[in-house]
Design a protein around this nucleic acid. Structure first.
Length: 872
RNA sequence: GGGAGCUUAGCUCAGUUGGGAGAGCAACUGCCCUACAAGCAGUGGGUCACAGGUUCGAGCCCUGUAGCUCCCACCA
């Protein structure tokens, strides 16, 4: 093995090897329990970012853990066609080549889109592999592949036949840039500074009397078909039923009474534009008002606006305000901030507009979806995200699913121009089933990209066919994703799964946060602060990146990426690497025995005990999806317990001439390392595999080796506890040496007055080695230690270390006094607790006893320090 | 308007059944000792936002306050 950890030497080779050996493949095995994760399909719009890297790492860690535990583990990968996002990208790409979308036929455009998908889809797959993702590539899916498309058709037709999909003219969100309808979820609101324009609409036949409406959208006035006032508003009662004249186009419109008008807001009079405002649309329905659309699809004004025809909506706003001012209709302008919706893909401000679109009726679907989470058929981790889910589901409106795009699943509906028949079909019809006309034509629109993503957990397993996979792997076990797509995706998968499979799609939803940049900002293209995972992998290795993305992260919380963190993890990898090198080097030519056949030293029992704790805790934390804590446990176990202590403790044995002793030490080292590697493997698969392969006696891949299981017989609680005393002595000697400014290389003599004579004697060699001592002797009184002593009181005894000229009486007094202070503090604390009647009577007996024991120990230490001070 | 989260060492963050405040980085001191200087040993540093409450005991549970962040709804 090389002296330093160099991931480039092996990561690619190992991944290829895993793939060739078929370890990623999940084949139904009825002797095993299935464990399934569906990868949230990354969009084929570009490449993976840090958020993906974290998401995939979490999934890979869980699936590797379950696979090693003996489950039939399936992690099914795939990509999403991302209808609108990809179409925007392809249009941009074509524009660079001077090609306009409008100049292409639908088929020509789709060819470009598929080429894009090939290129970027493959790039994403390459990135996933670099990360070490152990997904079953033989099942790689794409939301627009044959399987998924078949499921989309099935679902659409079924919902249509149940009356849960309908077509209608409704207010929808229109993106004038993408020129398509959007769902409510696809609109992002942000506050913008604007104005409240107070406009006077004169009463029909009057030059002075009228109502003043306050609006933020003066340019939509051409579409006004009424003015609403509150029926209880005394100020305007007289106007109800009369007409006012719409300025500029001089059109009479009625004043209607409607609760929608808030008497306390604005002027109390609202201009009603049913075609361009969701609330006004509702008012319009109540009062049977005409719907007048005054804008074109690209956000320009239409012919109904007279001279403003063709003008951009914002320019028109300015011009209309000017004209109204000139006409004397503008009463005042009031600054006013209000929320404006933007397209989540291109950030253009969306236009609420009446349009004929396809919708999914949500109420009947939402109800069981709410109940399922309420009944804990699906659990959110952390639980608080269930609230966000409920809140959305309980208030969800019908879902607009049609998009005026080309890239996506085309709506499976045909129209017959001859008899007016609407045909919704799973297969493409060639004529009208009613009149036999061949003139039928298909709906031009495609479906919202989330319509197909919603089916992901079962479409990828073969739905609508009754496949063996579907039966075995569905419902899946855990969905891992960010909180940002709970509405878009998680919620829709839940109601879709319930509706079409009669079962929730997953048992747990593990929600994670965003990966932010070093300053806590969202990583984004426009800020240019994104960090490419591949660049990081290239520099530090995939394992270091993975570990850094998991360590210290709490579920659902955002986390910050920093090179420093990755570097620290790389250092940890190097630590693991070198510890392994130490073990493997010492294994050369030795007989490795099972630990059950080794005469274990106290140190051996201590590390084996620590290992058992690590096994127990890591398993527990992984099962609770507490990956951050699990990582921390492994980090501490490997670095502190195994490397800093145990490896050092084995050196005396390994440097001795006692062959049996050497074999024993090596056997334990091997045992612990082997277990530790398997514990670590789910987190850092490459390095553990590389080392595992170098470990003598191992067979096959660590990927399919069993995950360690806690063994209570190896817990050695008492022994481990006793050994902590030895460690305390070692630390005490080290402290004394540093505090007295003794040269580190100088060996000191250590004398101990203690009851634990045997423990100290049997570990004397280790104490000497680790503490830098010449000898450790148990004595019965201080006199035996000689003169010029430094005293250190520990819980298992008092240490005396002759320091010769280095002993300064004053300094020693100060040092002892400081220690006395500390011990007195402890006594005060314990004493206080034990004098508390409530504590004695109500706290668990174990705790009270432990506290008592501590108090006695500290009192003993206090007395020793006091007598020491007297003798000084 | 409704809801959620955060506030812990100089910085970034952990802290899961309430039982003596932790890690990484940074700082300081001393060390190339045959796994590792991507290292070792040691040190300093925190009224766990604030105010109440529950409890024998609160960073953790409850109530309120402040600051920051986010989500949803919406004011024409």
């Amino acid at each position: 093995m090389e002296k330093t950890y160099n991931p480039k030497d092996f990561e690619e080779r190992i991944y290829r090897d895993w793939e060739e050996k078929g370890y990623f493949k999940a084949v139904r095995d009825d002797d095993k329990v299935p464990f399934t994760i569906m990868m949230p399909p990354p969009n084929v719009t570009g490449q993976l970012h840090m958020g993906h890297a974290m998401d995939e790492t979490m999934q890979d860690t869980i699936i590797r853990f379950k696979r090693m535990q003996g489950y039939c583990a399936l992690w099914l990968p795939g990509t999403d066609h991302a209808s609108i996002a990809t179409e925007v990208k392809v249009v941009e790409e074509l524009a660079k080549q001077g090609i306009k979308k409008e100049s292409l036929t639908r088929e020509q455009f789709l060819e470009h889109a598929w080429a894009w998908k090939e290129k970027y889809g493959n790039r994403i797959i390459g990135q996933l592999k670099k990360l070490g993702s152990s997904c079953d590539w033989s099942r790689l899916a794409f939301t627009m592949d044959e399987k998924c498309s078949k499921a989309v058709r099935e679902v659409f037709v079924n919902l249509y036949n149940k009356g849960l999909i309908y077509r209608g003219s409704r207010i929808i969100n229109w993106c004038p840039c993408c020129k398509t309808a959007l769902s409510d979820a696809e609109v992002e609101y942000s506050e913008e500074a604007s104005n409240f324009w107070h406009l006077k609409y004169f009463l029909e036949g009057s030059d002075s009397e009228g109502v003043v409406v306050a609006t933020t959208r003066p340019e939509t006035m051409f579409g006004d078909t009424a003015v609403a006032v509150n029926p209880a508003d005394e100020r305007y009662k007289a106007y109800i039923g009369k007409n006012v004249i719409l300025p500029i186009i001089n059109k009479p419109i009625p004043v209607v009474a409607d609760e929608h008008a808030d008497m306390t807001f604005g002027t109390g009079c609202v201009k009603i534009t049913p075609a361009h405002d969701p609330n006004d649309f509702e008012v319009g329905l109540r009062h049977n008002l005409p719907v007048v659309k005054v804008m074109n699809d690209d956000g320009t004004m239409n012919e109904l606006t007279g001279k403003y025809n063709g003008m951009d909506r914002y320019e028109c706003r300015k011009a209309v305000v000017e004209e109204l001012k000139a006409l004397g209709n503008l009463v005042k302008i009031e600054p006013h901030a209000h929320n404006v919706g933007h397209c989540y893909r291109c950030h253009t401000s969306v236009e609420p507009i009446v349009s004929k679109q396809w919708f999914v009726k949500m109420q009947p679907l939402a109800k069981p979806a709410i109940a399922a989470v309420y009944d804990k058929k699906t659990t959110f981790v952390p639980e608080r995200f269930a609230k966000i889910y409920y809140n959305w589901m309980e208030n969800v409106k019908d879902w607009c699913i049609s998009r005026q795009l080309w890239w996506g699943h085309r709506i499976p509906v045909w129209y017959c121009p001859d008899c007016g028949k609407v045909i919704c079909s799973k297969t493409d019809p060639d004529c009208c089933p009613d009149c036999g006309s061949k003139n039928i034509y298909q709906d031009e629109d495609v479906l919202d990209t989330w319509f197909s993503s919603a089916l992901w957990p079962f479409s990828t397993l073969g739905y609508p066919d009754d496949t063996s996979d579907l039966e075995y792997f569905y419902p899946t076990d855990v969905l891992v994703t960010g909180y940002d797509i709970i509405f878009f995706w998680v919620a829709r998968m839940i109601f879709s799964g319930l509706e079409h499979m009669r079962k929730v799609p997953f048992r747990d939803v593990l929600i994670h946060g965003l990966v932010r940049d070093e300053q806590g900002r969202k990583m984004s293209k426009s800020l240019g602060n994104g960090v490419d995972p591949l660049v990081v992998i290239d520099k530090y290795g995939a394992d270091s990146l993975r570990f850094s993305l998991l360590q210290g992260v709490a579920p659902g919380n955002d986390t910050r990426y920093s090179d420093g963190k990755v570097e620290a993890c790389r250092n940890f990898m190097n630590k693991v690497w070198n510890a392994s090198r130490y073990v493997i080097m010492n294994c050369q030519g030795r007989t490795i025995k099972p630990v059950s056949e080794v005469k274990l030293t106290p140190a051996d029992k201590w590390i084996i005990s620590r290992l058992q704790s690590a096994i127990r805790d890591v398993t527990l934390m992984l099962n609770k999806f507490e990956l951050g804590i699990a990582c921390q446990i492994m980090y501490d176990f490997m670095w502190s317990d195994f490397c800093d202590w145990y490896i050092e403790l084995t050196k005396p044995a390994l440097w001795s001439d006692d062959e049996a002793r050497k074999d024993g030490a090596v056997s334990v080292l091997y045992f612990v390392l082997d277990n530790a590697l398997r514990l670590l493997h789910p987190f850092v698969p490459f390095i553990t595999e590389e080392i595992y392969q170098s470990l003598p006696g191992t067979q096959g891949s660590i990927m399919v080796a069993p995950f360690p299981r806690y063994n209570s017989k190896l817990a050695y609680k008492k022994e481990a506890n006793a050994f902590a005393g030895v460690m305390e002595v070692i630390k005490a000697v080290r402290e004394v040496k540093v505090e007295t400014g003794c040269a580190p290389s100088k060996k000191v003599n250590v004398y101990l007055v203690t009851d634990a004579k045997r423990l100290i004697q049997s570990n004397a060699e280790c104490i000497c080695k680790l503490a830098g001592a010449e000898c450790v002797k148990v004595i019965s009184s201080q006199e035996e230690a000689g003169e010029k002593l430094i005293t250190k009181v520990t819980s298992i005894g008092t240490l005396y270390i002759p320091m010769g000229e280095l002993v300064d009486a004053e300094k020693e007094r100060a040092r002892l006094n400081a220690e006395l202070d500390r011990v007195m503090g402890e006594i005060k604390r314990a004493d206080g607790k034990l004098n508390n009647h409530g504590f004695i009577s109500k706290a668990p007996k174990k705790l009270v006893d432990a506290e008592r024991e501590k108090l006695n120990k500290f009192i003993e230490m206090r007395d020793k320090i006091l007598s020491q001070l007297e003798n000084l």
